[in-house]
Write a protein that binds this DNA or RNA. Structure first.
Lengths: 213, 213
DNA sequence: CATGCAGCAAATGTATACATAGGCCGACGT
DNA sequence: ACGTCGGCCTATGTATACATTTGCTGCATG
């Protein structure tokens, strides 16, 4: 794998899982030595991160990890409701009913995946990720898909602000199942409504459980 | 100005005004010599263009200018309707009524700007650009604003597919005036409807006047 | 005591040399 | 004659040396 790709993947992971906290300065020499690559591929990695909005260049202090506050969460969900609502509606119009029917079945059984044995809820998030991918490919619109994907990057960070307890995840699974069912039934307005409902509940949960640091 | 910035601006301009046609290969040495910068800043410029979607890396042949077809136009407008509709609605909720009232007045007088003396319609597009900026800043949502801006880049390219005759521009000015008026009146649903109407007419115009090459 | 300027230091920005991989062309074999 | 293999050559990927800018510190002056 290319050195710039390695540096990009590593930094991206570390930012998304809050190993690198907002405000952390990513100096070129420092990071290039730490990651074992030279400054050139590291700069390319920093450029890509900046384009995604995960970092910003603080005039004079170099590149720093972007901040993400509760206000950002409101803004993110405002955009998310718009984009994912439209995506769900288009998926209902254009998607393959059997694909989403199967996802619906799986999501109904999802509470079984939320076991205490897997604190990271790997299986659960993998299933939700497959629903996202199915919607992306069903909408047949690369620009919308791209917009949704770039938005989801930030949402991964936000997830850490919320306490994803088993109770909430079980409820969320039911909401996702409702979205899949609506898409499978080919009803755009219902799919959009189910998405809106899910996002509002997610946002409420984040805001209710967030403990200010 | 930085060399990488110069290279980026130049290439971006050339792609947007179709001086660099879709499919054109942007080899690093070739372009760095042409633009008078070394390969390092040029690579940074190419990276930024790729992140915007104006170029893509063609496996083996390096970086090429992205294609943009009539199918892309449909996809672009589908996303545009979603984003700009939401933006207009938010602007109506949160914007300063006087700002949009003044833009409304100016847009009503816009047909006077469309003179035969200025084939590029510089004054007209400047005014429309100010409406876009006013909406962007009124929505108070940096993520949505960013999404709208990244979308507009592609629309600049599309504009060249349409024959922007004086008749269409006069009608478009009236549609823009209606949007500004709806925002000034603080009516989100009206603002969204006016935007939807305008975008549909723009798309119809593009599809009606486009002469396949 | 505060403010501004000058010099220094460390960061980023740029150029270039070098490594490496992949594609193309020619030759050889079937 | 066509296909395949090998070598060369040109492209990109990386490292590093150098230039340049900017922020900070300390001293001097009002």
């Amino acid at each position: 794998m290319r050195a710039s790709e390695r540096a990009y993947q590593t930094l991206r992971e570390e930012i998304l899982d809050w190993s690198l906290l907002p405000g952390t300065v990513l100096a070129e020499v420092e990071q290039s030595e730490r990651l074992g690559v030279s400054r050139t591929p590291l700069r390319e990695a920093l450029g890509r991160l900046g384009a995604e909005g995960l970092t910003r260049t603080a005039r004079g202090r170099g590149v720093v990890v972007s901040d993400i506050s509760l206000e950002d969460v409101d803004e993110l969900f405002e955009l998310r409701e718009t984009l994912e609502g439209k995506a769900a509606a288009l998926a209902a119009e254009r998607g393959d009913s059997t694909v989403f029917g199967e996802l619906h079945e799986e999501l109904l059984a999802a509470p079984g995946l939320i076991s205490e044995a897997d604190p990271a809820r790997h299986d659960y998030y993998e299933l939700v990720g497959r629903l996202d991918e199915a919607i992306d490919s069903a909408i047949s619109n690369s620009y919308l898909a791209q917009a949704v994907r770039s938005l989801r990057v930030h949402l991964v960070r936000v997830r850490r602000l919320a306490a994803d307890d088993a109770t909430r995840l079980t409820a969320a699974a039911a909401e996702h199942a409702a979205i899949a069912e609506a898409i499978a039934s080919g009803n755009p307005r219902l799919a959009e409504a189910a998405t809106t409902l899910h996002l509002h509940r997610s946002l409420s949960h984040i805001k209710a459980t967030h403990t200010p640091r």
